[in-house]
Write a protein that binds this DNA or RNA. Structure first.
Lengths: 333, 333
DNA sequence: TTGAAAGCGCTAACAG
DNA sequence: CTGTTAGCGCTTTCAA
């Protein structure tokens, strides 16, 4: 980036007005006579003038840029959330700086700090654990943050989620009604709030309420191969119905089951709680707790625009509807 | 973003040096006495000083930010490319502004212009068609661009790809050797260079060289349902072997075939040329032209860092190796 | 090795 | 409705 070829100053000179006036027409300020506006616009077009957003940012203290913090770009769960965010961001003319934080060369709070140094106007956070250092940095810079599809420990930050407890209970009920009694829960990070305080709690309650003697919670099962490898353990434990948080994990379990000659859903029911593309293209297609991922992202971004605008927010913890979609991995008797 | 709490000026005052000196230690300039440096560093830490990247950008004319232009975030093909880009970007301390351009409320070149206005130091472009307006805007602002997994019409811009022709030919050969004679090609945008000049050309040549009388090229087949719906046409046309550019499309064809009771690969062979996660989790798993997506992204980003640094580049059109991975959707006799 | 000072390109009072 | 004038927070000569 060498010296910018045409600046607001050139336009001002050429249109015989002050920079202030050019700035006004660029920003759609109404206090400009029609003729003046048109003259300036003509010059802008002729000179191919484009405002330097960095200079605008420095002067106005607004960058019209929001940060997205996501564990992994190649996880469709986050990609679909991001799509909803992206569409609303475009609508409100925000650009997106995306930062992934899993398996990284750098520590998470360093990456987040570098994002904040870029003076983003707001942040949408999607990882299921919010480190204290990050929370502090957000507060220190006074940057609005919205959690999408996740929660923090103390419900300090606004969030958009579904009712994970209720969804879990509904899933267990489905399997229970199909006659399954050896129900299991498979999650990734057991300490993430959405898991510990919600999914695990719901599972424990269900088990207790239905006089099921054993608890089967499998943790730190994070991807396809983790799921695939877990299957033998499930079989050993006699599991006949399992709720899995991640699609790819669920598909891993499914494929391992099929490879082992196990019948799904007759001998093993599988429900996944993400409902990304991958859950619907495998055969048998997976029964899912269908989270409205796109909408969660969109609503989170809309909420963030309000926060960045200092508008009033009536509800800072939005709970979106979900749907239990019955496919071929449950009997649905 | 209210007035920044602690600036370089505060640090200077507190450390009893000039802003220039603080700037030097922040930027690792060696021309600072050791004691001075340590004193400044102590103050920086104590005051939680973080440089304002926007101000740095305006003053230095470098934002350490690169733009990513991608059709769709939820397409794993692009997500995996992006991951490679992201890792290398982190390594060189660049942030990423991501911009998706498919089905948008705004025109592509407007979105790109807004990206350029943010003064990104470089751009990685992944869409398979580069509009003239965009190319002009890149040249006008002198912003380095690298194409990842795609090419432009005139090979004006540096690119990182695989040999699509050779890969296609190899795929047809595999099916031909399995005895398939009604071979087809399924692509998305027929006018994209990677398709028109490469995949289609390779297909036509193969057909001609092997005395196959009919050409079967299906275009504008873009997603899972397009693929699913295309199947009946394939069946009508008696196709027994098909090369598909997109994974999701290929899976659509696969599922439609299975639903119709067609045997894959006995009656229909399917090869996909993307090799994302989705191709390997379906059953039968798809034989693929395995593109090194992560590496393509990584190499493209590495090339971009050189361009942004005005370093010499020996080869501006890098061709990466690929691998034809035989799975269950071909006979492999 | 350090500091003074002039910008980078734009916005935002304030005055007229 | 329009112009003047300070900055925004930092980098970068140029001198010392």
């Amino acid at each position: 980036m060498h010296k910018q070829e045409v600046t607001i100053y050139d336009v001002a000179r050429e249109a015989k007005v002050s920079m202030a006036t050019v700035s006004r027409v660029v920003n759609g300020n109404n206090n400009v006579r029609k003729e003046t506006r048109e003259r300036v616009e003509e010059v802008i077009k002729r000179l191919h003038y484009q405002p330097n957003a960095v200079a605008q940012g420095l002067a106005s203290k607004k960058t019209t840029t929001v940060g997205l913090i996501v564990p992994d770009l190649t996880n469709l769960y986050f990609a679909e959330l991001s799509k909803g965010i992206d569409d609303i961001a475009l609508l409100y003319k925000y650009n997106i700086i995306i930062t992934s934080i899993e398996n990284r060369l750098m520590k998470e709070d360093q990456v987040i700090q570098s994002l904040l140094n870029k003076q983003v106007d707001g942040v949408i956070y999607m990882s299921n654990r919010l480190p204290d250092e990050a929370a502090e940095a957000f507060k220190r810079t006074d940057t609005p943050v919205v959690l999408a599809g996740t929660k923090d420990n103390r419900a300090e930050f606004p969030s958009v989620t579904i009712d994970y407890k209720k969804a879990g209970t509904e899933a267990y009920n489905l399997m229970y009604n199909d006659g399954k009694r050896k129900l299991a829960l498979v999650v990734g990070d057991p300490d993430a709030v959405v898991n510990s305080d919600n999914r695990v709690t719901a599972y424990r309650k269900f088990v207790k309420d239905h006089d099921i003697s054993e608890e089967h919670i499998y943790t730190n099962v994070n991807d396809y191969s983790d799921g695939y490898n877990l299957f033998s353990q499930l079989e050993k434990d006699g599991i006949d119905g399992v709720l899995v948080t991640r699609d790819s994990t669920a598909v891993g379990i499914l494929n391992a089951a099929l490879d082992a000659g196990k019948k799904v859903p007759e001998e093993l029911e599988i429900i996944t709680s993400s409902a990304t593309q991958i859950a619907s293209v495998v055969r048998p297609a997976l029964t899912t707790v269908k989270q409205p991922l796109y909408d969660i992202g969109a609503v989170a971004m809309r909420m963030l625009t309000k926060l960045m605008n200092n508008e009033e927010i009536d509800d800072t913890h939005i709970v979106m509807p979900y749907e239990l979609v019955k496919k071929q991995s449950t009997l649905n008797s």
